[in-house]
Simulated scan of single mutants.
Amino acid sequence: MTWKSFHRRGEILRTLITTADTRRDGLLPMDVEGVAETFGDELSLVGALSLRWHTRLAGRIERELMTQPMDLEATVVAAWRRTAGELPGIRAILDHYRERPGDAAMADALARATAKEHVLLAVMAGRSSAADRTAVRVGEQIEQRARATAAVAA
């Protein structure tokens, strides 16, 4: 990938995210100019959006823990909620395709990404180690708590 194509890809991804944030319908905005040519297919696009979500979430958790290191789980929950507020379109797309993947490859990719996210949540909340078999379940509970408290706050 050349620098020009790298920057073009980033520009299209930003436009796509803005469109997704506006629509919030959970559907991939494949109609955005340049998306099909740049990302090729829905799986590649979901992968790029999943990476953007995970990177932002991990960074947000790190920043939140710097200012509120005493209640790890509450801080991780707050970080998840803030990230969902910053990237509502991506969150809606990931939720939609997690429930209704386009094909088996997308279902597998999203299941693996979700499991990794849940491990991140559990580990950063101090509730598990990455090697612990219960980490995914614990992280899922933390995500559910974040979603529940976000719904109450809304």
Results as ranks from 00 to 15, higher is better:
1 M>T: 13
2 T>S: 11
5 S>C: 02
7 H>V: 10
7 H>L: 10
8 R>T: 14
9 R>W: 00
9 R>E: 12
10 G>V: 03
11 E>R: 13
11 E>C: 01
13 L>G: 01
14 R>W: 05
14 R>K: 14
15 T>D: 04
16 L>D: 04
17 I>E: 00
17 I>M: 15
18 T>K: 08
18 T>E: 12
18 T>P: 11
22 T>W: 07
22 T>Y: 11
23 R>Q: 12
25 D>K: 07
27 L>W: 02
27 L>I: 07
28 L>A: 14
29 P>R: 10
29 P>G: 07
30 M>L: 14
31 D>P: 00
32 V>R: 11
33 E>C: 05
33 E>M: 07
33 E>K: 09
35 V>M: 02
35 V>K: 03
38 T>H: 02
41 D>M: 04
42 E>T: 07
42 E>Q: 14
44 S>D: 14
46 V>K: 02
46 V>Q: 02
46 V>Y: 02
49 L>I: 13
50 S>N: 13
50 S>F: 01
50 S>H: 09
51 L>K: 06
54 H>E: 12
54 H>F: 11
55 T>S: 09
55 T>H: 06
55 T>W: 02
55 T>D: 06
56 R>K: 15
57 L>I: 05
57 L>W: 06
60 R>C: 02
60 R>T: 14
61 I>E: 01
62 E>H: 08
62 E>W: 13
62 E>C: 08
62 E>G: 08
64 E>V: 10
64 E>W: 01
67 T>G: 10
67 T>Y: 00
69 P>M: 15
73 E>V: 14
73 E>K: 09
74 A>L: 00
75 T>L: 00
76 V>W: 03
77 V>A: 08
77 V>Y: 03
78 A>Q: 13
79 A>T: 09
80 W>K: 09
81 R>N: 06
81 R>A: 09
81 R>F: 06
84 A>W: 04
85 G>W: 05
86 E>L: 12
86 E>H: 04
88 P>V: 15
89 G>I: 02
89 G>E: 00
92 A>C: 10
95 D>F: 08
96 H>F: 00
99 E>V: 15
100 R>K: 12
103 D>S: 06
104 A>P: 13
104 A>W: 01
105 A>E: 03
106 M>P: 04
106 M>I: 10
109 A>W: 01
109 A>M: 12
110 L>I: 09
111 A>G: 11
111 A>H: 15
111 A>V: 13
111 A>S: 13
112 R>A: 15
112 R>Y: 01
113 A>T: 14
113 A>E: 07
115 A>Q: 07
116 K>C: 03
116 K>Y: 04
118 H>I: 01
120 L>M: 12
120 L>S: 10
122 A>P: 04
123 V>F: 05
124 M>E: 13
124 M>C: 15
126 G>V: 14
127 R>N: 07
128 S>W: 05
128 S>A: 14
129 S>P: 11
129 S>Y: 03
133 R>D: 12
138 V>P: 08
139 G>E: 00
140 E>C: 08
141 Q>N: 14
141 Q>M: 03
143 E>A: 13
143 E>S: 12
143 E>W: 01
145 R>G: 00
147 R>D: 13
148 A>Q: 12
148 A>G: 05
149 T>M: 06
150 A>V: 05
151 A>T: 07
153 A>H: 07
154 A>I: 07
